[in-house]
Design a protein around this nucleic acid. Structure first.
Length: 787
DNA sequence: ATCTTGGCCATTTTT
DNA sequence: TGGCCAAGAT
């Protein structure tokens, strides 16, 4: 009986949730087979051990940075499975990022084998999709629904805002979208938006109206945004208690990572599911809560005991990652926050053996000097035997990566930027995916709009307008309206013929869907639609790369056995692995992206007032935001195992203006005995011969000064000093050695390359990364041959 | 219908 | 500084 139940219920086959009666419980491991202390528990410290083995009842694990949080989670899951306390599909394991989900799956797989595949493990959003794929119809989400990214969301909302007569200048789309998302984060549907909610007043007081219309449109095109993936689940749980009950019964154990980053909707989602067996284990660190701007509520962690009466709490405070000096610096800093549960990190294990180098704080003149200094230190470290892969530059905001990239390119240091454009955010991929979406989901108006005239088919604004009108009049999707228009003479013959062809192609591919795999189908689609040809004919420098990306897309699709599965994957988890460089490279990324990672050596640039703590954050959040910024600083410091370099620049060019900033207050907050402060600003002036322009300089740049006398000159001088000439600045081009075919050159934008053709001052260069380009000779610098 | 120009705006963090 | 959108030219 029990065995039969086990066989029948396999993930993907559980079409009827009512099947999940008591008989799904696994065979318990006979007492004789249970070892007193299974080997996977070896090497855990007492607190970790307790966190792993306290399987029954609600448990909150407060886990400071570097205390083995991931290890606890993976071991706990393995322990539950290995002891047969539940079958794999009886475990729900929620992470915050796809990366964390992947890692956990791998590690658990290594510990206990392939059964790990069957655990319900993923991000909140991915798990929400999984539930909605099965039960979405009950709450108005039809099969094959589309998941929208932020770009799609804006395009959906825009016409609604215009119709409502709201000025887009005054109320920028992203701001309005943000308000809707914050409401969704709190689990509010339009009629649940609280009357006292301040952001109701946005968009001339029509915000709720817009939200309602937006949800209506989502329903019409059968799409969900990220928030909906949870919100619809909550509605499902509320309106269909029998469905909820089946999940409650199924999930005997629930594990949650990064609990401090959950929002209200997520915590409600968890609580609904956990109310069955009440075996929920949440791991988190209130000191690392850095996503409140996105709706995360530290309150969730603070009120855990209230939400789950009788909860146990375990603190993990032994840090195995960082030296005592780094931990001291981090602890000293975070002590300035008032709103915390309070933990004391102690160095333990190997890291505790020596005190370690103090945190180096270094002041520089400007952002460029800072980048140069940082990259010089990277060189030093590398020479001292630290591998590039174990170093990272962590910045506050994405745009700050640029100056470091430029410098790293110049010096030829391999690097990778995490979190740039994702693969699926590239235009060509989005176009191709839009075709696929339209095949999969004919109601997807956003996809229709995107591809109707891509490549050009002579169906421009006028034609689209006609289709829109027809669609609105009849209340049908654009593709349906287009089809009906073909039977009338409302369109001129030319566009009509083009439209007929377009519709016929879509129909043809849709018919082929069952006959061939998604990879093959996509290949055919790209060829027949003319989309691939469009890029092949394109002479612009990036076109070949786009063709390659499309080929890569087809290859990726081969891995899937259904289009549906692929579309879900691409919306939720497709990552930028296209240029995930092989070989060692310095990592450049934002502090947010660095959470959960660790490096031997960490560089933390831009520690200045206004930049970090970030002015805008402070403006709209006051003290609460300051504390979040401080937590961000704490996250940065605690990423390092051995060494931290903090830098600050006196001057920074922001837009077109020079702005001078004071060192960040966070620097002062690091205890003196944990830091070592130095500054370059005096030294640079003295070390540079002609110092008059330096010594008379008052620390501020006159923005009205023509660039040639200030900025460019300084730039040239800096580069001269290092033996690199900067031809772009002046007449020094004569000193440029004549270039010839085969010369190795470096360009400040395109990086390294080999000269292919010379023609006076014009060159054609084959660049290593961006391919063949025409450039002016004065913009490249010859690189001495290393051989 | 597509290409070009000029004015405007902006930079926080992301599943 | 540059990237984006809206309005003009061919």
């Amino acid at each position: 009986m029990k065995g039969a139940g086990l066989c029948r219920i396999v993930p993907g086959m559980m079409d009827d949730p009512f099947d999940l009666s008591d008989d799904f419980l696994p065979e318990p491991v006979p007492a004789a087979d249970r070892r007193a202390r299974p080997s996977w528990l070896d090497g855990l410290n007492p607190e970790q051990l307790q966190a792993v083995t306290t399987t029954e009842g609600p448990l909150l694990v407060l886990s400071g940075a570097g205390t083995g949080k991931t290890r606890v989670l993976t071991t706990r899951l393995s322990h539950i499975l290995a002891q047969r306390l539940a079958p794999p599909w009886g475990c729900l394991c929620v992470t915050f990022t796809n990366r964390a989900a992947r890692e956990m799956r791998e590690r658990v797989g290594q510990m206990i084998g392939p059964v790990a595949e069957q655990v319900w493990l993923g991000t909140f959003h991915a798990l929400g999709v999984r539930i909605l794929r099965r039960h979405g119809e009950l709450v108005g989400v039809r099969a094959g629904f589309t998941i929208l990214d932020s770009d799609d969301q804006n395009r959906l909302l825009k016409p609604l805002v215009e119709q409502a007569g709201v000025d887009l200048k005054k109320w920028p789309l992203p701001a309005l979208m943000g308000i809707i998302q914050r409401w969704k984060d709190r689990g509010w549907l339009p009629d649940a938006v609280s009357k006292s909610e301040a952001s109701r007043d946005a968009a001339n007081g029509r915000m709720v109206e817009l939200y309602t219309a937006y949800q209506q449109r989502l329903h019409e095109v059968n799409a969900c945004d990220f928030g909906d993936l949870l919100l619809h689940c909550l509605t499902l749980f509320r309106t269909h208690p029998e469905v909820l009950a089946s999940y409650q019964q199924q999930f005997r154990y629930i594990l949650v990572d990064e609990y401090q980053d959950t929002n209200v909707a997520q915590s409600l989602w968890l609580r609904a599911l956990a109310l069955g067996h009440r075996n929920i284990c949440c791991v988190g660190d209130d000191d690392q809560s850095i996503y409140s701007w996105r709706g995360a509520e530290v309150a969730n962690i603070l009120r855990f005991e209230h939400d789950y009466p009788g909860a146990q709490i375990i603190r993990l405070e032994r840090n195995y990652r960082s030296t005592p000096a780094i931990l001291g610096a981090a602890s000293g800093l975070i002590r300035h926050n008032s709103d915390r549960l309070g933990k004391d990190l102690r160095a333990a294990g190997d890291a505790a053996q020596e005190r370690g180098d103090r945190v180096a704080i270094h002041g520089l003149w400007d952002g460029e000097a800072e980048a140069r200094w940082v990259v010089d230190r990277i060189d030093d470290q590398q020479r001292a035997g630290v591998s590039l892969a174990s170093m990272a530059i962590l910045v506050r905001a994405g745009f700050q990566t640029r100056e470091f990239e430029e410098r790293l390119i110049m010096t030829g240091t391999p690097y990778r930027v995490v979190g740039g454009l994702r693969f699926y955010e590239r235009a060509e991929i989005r176009d191709a995916v839009a075709y696929l979406r339209l095949i999969e989901q004919p109601a997807d108006d956003l996809a229709f709009e995107r591809v109707i005239n891509t490549p050009k088919r002579g169906l421009g604004d006028a034609a689209l307008q006609t289709i829109h009108l027809a669609a609105r009049a009849e209340g049908v999707p654009l593709l349906t309206a287009a089809r009906r228009l073909l039977d009338t003479d409302e369109m001129k013959p030319k566009p009509r013929k083009a439209l007929a062809q377009f519709v016929a192609m879509i129909d043809e591919w849709a018919a082929l869907r069952s006959a061939m795999g998604p990879g093959e189908l996509t290949g055919q689609m790209l060829a027949e639609s003319g989309y691939l040809d469009m890029w092949k004919k394109d002479r612009s420098p990036e076109a070949p790369g786009r063709v390659e990306n499309l080929q890569e897309l087809v290859a990726a699709l081969e891995e899937f056995d259904s289009l549906t599965g692929f579309l879900e994957h691409i919306a939720l988890v497709m990552e930028n692995d296209a240029k995930a460089g092989q070989g060692a490279a310095v990592t450049v990324m934002t502090l947010h992206a660095a959470k959960g990672l660790e490096f031997d050596v960490v560089f933390l640039p831009g520690w200045e007032e206004e930049v970090f703590p970030n002015r805008r954050a402070l403006d709209d959040g006051g003290l609460k935001s300051l504390e979040e910024e401080r937590r961000l600083a704490y996250v940065g410091l605690t990423r390092a195992r051995k060494r931290v370099f903090v830098t600050h620049a006196a001057n920074r060019r922001v837009f077109n203006q020079w702005q001078n900033n004071l060192p960040s207050r966070f620097i002062e907050e690091i205890p003196d005995e944990m830091k070592e402060v130095s500054s370059d600003t005096g030294l640079m002036a003295g070390s540079h011969g002609r110092s008059e322009s330096w010594s008379s300089w008052n620390g501020q740049w006159d923005t009205s000064r023509p660039p040639s006398t200030g900025w460019q000159e300084r730039k040239a001088r800096f580069n001269d000093r290092e033996g690199l000439s900067w031809q772009g600045a002046g007449k020094k081009a004569s000193s440029q050695p004549s270039l010839q075919r085969g010369d190795r050159v470096v360009h400040d934008k395109f990086g390294y390359g080999d000269v292919v053709i010379t023609d006076g001052d014009k060159l054609e260069v084959m660049f290593d990364t961006v391919g063949r380009k025409k450039v002016v000779a004065s913009f490249v610098t010859v690189v001495p041959d290393p051989e």
